[in-house]
Design a protein around this nucleic acid. Structure first.
Lengths: 342, 342
DNA sequence: CCAAATTGTGTAACCGCTTACATTATAGAA
DNA sequence: TTCTATAATGTAAGCGGTTACACAATTTGG
């Protein structure tokens, strides 16, 4: 294992100085004379010595490593957040570890133990929908965790959770999506995705209703359907909606929970003989890398997830208690078109 | 910060025992009497005490944390590997940190320092193509790193790198893809993707030639084009190939570096008036989540990236020096069809 | 030319835990 | 009852760094 066993004592001995001096050279303390510094540096380089960050952590009480809790890295949306967070961390000299969602949500003795033991310098938690019985667990885990390290939340953050956070403006985004479709002449607009009890979904619903109301359009219950966040779920939900409605009542515009759901919706619509965008306009969310390559290219909303991840790290390290709203912007592509003539 | 400051001394004092006894209770040593154990456990629970894993690491020389080096988490292929690795690590009681590719490839003083200092218990490195001037740096970084911790490689591993590894059988896979297209009657088959000097690409090229040779088909140079691994790169490469050939010489079958490149190829082909799969069959690789939702659904190769990540962790922790080949299998979808009649 | 200020370096305690070894309490054997 | 295994617990020495403080060497000022 070579120089992994090299310690500050070895360097001190070889350079003929005390460990204190080596330590000073290491941190660039100016109180070391030029020649001593040079000699020590030479030995350090020759022995390829790296001070152990964990020994450092003993006294400094800081590990220079952060954590992030994600429901699912396979969702590219989270991969983008992670990427941004990881970059931000590294630029600030920190490493970033991934922890599974269930380490803060699972029932059981001490779900947050894994994190607490590691004495991270902070943790980012991406909050997703949870069934009510697990929400209490999340609260407990966060409370426990906070006793060990600062926390920053990302996502659909319940406003009663008092942590620094970057949250999505889902009501505003959804209202904007409704307006987008209305401006194209659509009147039968469906909202697909989100769990029924999901707060985030609740906000979507609010924005959806607002958008319709502002245009004096009725809100039809069968146009509001719930489903998980995957393409399969979107496909199933869309399929069911179309099957249960007379074709004359089919919506002409779809607002999907995210791009994956939108992909599923388009597939289901196609199977029912609908052409996108001629018969049906579709709007996704997250602007995944594949959105421009779908057929038709998917109109989506860019959530700037990478900068969101970076921002979360900044928030975490600054110690501020800000609660910010994530920026977003339209990315208009071919999947939206004027409403078909009736 | 609450009980983050609680130490083993506090617990010992409150329970009226020595720190050694607390330590024994913590690790479940049977030499502690029943009542003492109970009393200590009660205090631990009440104070919500968690031993610091970093203090533990001081004596145990083990951090119970692993690292993974990836070129790009935004590539879902790597996200899948990471997910598998992270799961595997957690099941074994380890955490998993992400490190940027440039921490092993960047020129400069000590690219591997970030990793070395952290005294991880092991690191997985996903090797990707590197220009020759950086390859030497990679070798150096790996050599340095190995003095601190075990390494496992994933990907297109140069056979002269003597590390435990899980490598892709790119020659075999590509040959199989050629055979697949030939069996559908294709004779003009193009290979798109990979850097010219890339070893992995080299192996693809070998498989490609073998496949053609076995069927006594000529190998046309203009059907072998290089490009990066993104959809944009694939689009550009395909565009250029079609533009530079007479339509009568256009290939009828495409083997793409990966699904993202395949997506780009399909987009470019469409712009040139080609229908997929009627005029052009396309094969991708990696079986991304969006492959089934493309139009037409993309035929791809499942690399089982998640189990690959898990396997890498197993290899890392076992300390064995095995070199395995990743499993793969066909996922046939609509993007491949019999060759068009001439 | 000597006292005081400044500079450079070393000593030792400490961070929170593990563990070899020492010590004490308890039980069983003679 | 006394001696010796055995079980239960405590003591203290690390692990590899950081840092307050002490001290020696050098420079500066009067």
């Amino acid at each position: 294992m070579g120089q992994s066993g090299t310690t500050i004592y070895d360097i001190a001995e070889e350079a003929g100085v005390s460990i204190a001096t080596v330590s000073r050279v290491l941190k660039g303390d100016s109180s070391v004379s030029g020649k001593t510094r040079l000699r020590v540096k030479e030995v350090i380089a020759r022995r390829n010595y790296r001070p152990s960050s964990i020994a450092r952590g003993m006294t400094s009480k800081t590990t220079h490593s952060l954590g992030i809790v994600l429901p699912k890295l396979l969702n590219p949306n989270y991969a983008m957040i992670f990427t941004g967070a990881s970059d931000g961390a590294r630029q600030a000299g920190y490493s970033m570890s991934l922890f599974p969602w269930r380490s803060v949500t699972e029932q059981g003795e001490n779900p947050a133990m894994l994190l607490a033991e590691r004495r991270l310098d902070g943790v980012i938690v991406c909050v997703e929908y949870l069934p009510p019985d697990q929400q209490e667990q999340l609260r407990r885990s966060l409370a426990e965790l906070q006793q060990y390290m600062p926390i920053v939340l990302i996502g659909c953050v319940p406003s009663d959770l008092e942590y620094p956070a970057i949250s999505y403006n889902m009501a505003e985004i959804t209202r904007s999506a409704v307006e987008e479709l209305i401006s194209l002449g659509h009147e039968k607009i469906a909202l697909i995705g989100g769990m029924e009890e999901d707060r985030d979904q609740h906000r979507r619903d609010i924005g959806y209703r607002q958008g319709l109301e502002n245009a004096h359009l009725p809100c039809v219950d069968s146009y509001r359907v719930w489903c998980g966040g995957t393409a399969e779920a979107g496909e199933a939900a869309m399929d069911q909606m179309l099957s249960s409605l007379l074709p004359s009542h089919w919506p002409t515009g779809i607002i999907a929970l995210n791009d994956m759901v939108a992909m599923g919706c388009m597939a289901a619509a196609r199977r029912h003989g609908l052409r996108v965008p001629e018969d049906l306009s579709v709007i996704g969310c997250d602007n995944l890398f594949c959105a421009p390559y779908l057929l038709p290219a998917l109109t989506s909303i860019n959530m700037h997830q990478q900068s969101l991840g970076r921002e979360a790290v900044t928030l975490l390290l600054s110690g501020e208690n800000r609660r910010e709203s994530a920026l977003w912007e339209w990315v208009r592509r071919d999947s939206c078109a004027p409403a078909p003539r009736r």
